[in-house]
């Protein structure tokens, strides 16, 4: 059975697109047929982060409107077997993604892919609701920062009321907390919420922690999902997240500061 996973947050700029690209790539690296869909109508960005912006011909809305077929719109990744991208439309019309249209595309994708990753736009409006509506599971991307945590809580509320699973009284969307842009150093000095703090407030299981890392910007500059950069700690953290998502035992490596107590005491 295909699984639909929404990557969502409420607040903007917390790392949804970075996560969608990294997570989808990670699943495909494990040999799973994976497609990642950009739901950010009008602000297409996933194509850039995935490095396929020059290969976009037809987009999600074209497919819904019957202006191009799905096979023409799906972009096959050149680096990873079994990874595909469905780009967003640049139309200004935010209502272009209709429930019926999205449902139709999802039905076709479900026959062909094991994992369908939906990169949600920011906010709590139509676009965010469309991205989460058909989801079976959700990655709730959160920064250890007050406004992001509060918005994540609102999104959790919407997952349990505005999704297909909620509306049709099916088992609820399975939620996973993903803390990104985490600095264990700042947590240790007491000026950043810890993974445990955020997990306690939001009360959903923690799937993983992605450290704040320069390699994320470098990867997006180059159009390479960060999970393909073997030297990136953020990339390693995302690969761990994928492993845990697939049910493997994988200790949290990025919550604790790598430096010991003494270097914290005397070092920088």
């Amino acid at each position: 059975m295909a699984k639909i996973i929404v990557v969502t947050s409420g607040k903007g700029g917390v790392g949804k697109t970075t996560t969608s690209a990294a997570f989808a790539t990670g699943l495909a690296l494990r040999g799973h047929q994976t497609v990642v869909i950009d739901f950010d109508v009008g602000l297409r960005n996933l194509d850039l982060v995935m490095g396929c912006e020059r290969r976009v011909v037809y987009d999600f809305v074209n497919v819904i409107n019957g202006e191009g077929n799905l096979n023409q719109a799906l972009i096959k990744d050149k680096r990873v077997e079994s990874l595909f991208i469905l780009p967003a439309s640049q139309t200004r019309d935010k209502e272009a993604l209709t429930m019926k249209g999205v449902a139709k595309v999802m039905e076709v994708l479900k026959k062909r892919f094991e994992y369908i990753i939906c990169d949600s736009p920011a906010g709590i409006e139509h676009g965010a609701i469309m991205a989460m509506y058909f989801a079976d599971e959700a990655l709730i991307v959160t920064n250890p920062e007050v406004s992001s945590v509060r918005d994540s809580d609102r999104i959790i509320g919407m997952l349990s009321s505005k999704t297909r699973r909620a509306v049709q009284n099916l088992p609820p969307v399975k939620e996973h907390l993903l803390l990104t842009r985490y600095s264990s150093k700042r947590v240790n000095t007491g000026d950043m919420l810890s993974a445990q703090d955020v997990q306690e407030i939001l009360a959903i299981p923690l799937l993983g922690v992605i450290p704040e890392s320069k390699s994320v910007l470098q990867a997006s500059n180059a159009g390479i999902p960060v999970t393909l950069d073997k030297n990136s700690n953020a990339g390693q953290a995302y690969l761990d997240v994928v492993a845990r998502f697939l049910g493997e035992e994988c200790p949290q490596r990025f919550i604790e500061d790598k430096k010991g107590f003494f270097s914290r005491l005397f070092g920088s």
């Binding site: 920062e145 007491g190 000026d191 950043m192 919420l193 810890s194």
Partner: peptide, 9 residues
Amino acid sequence: TATVAKERL
């Protein structure tokens, strides 16, 4: 500040 943030949240 993280403690304050947690309480407020």
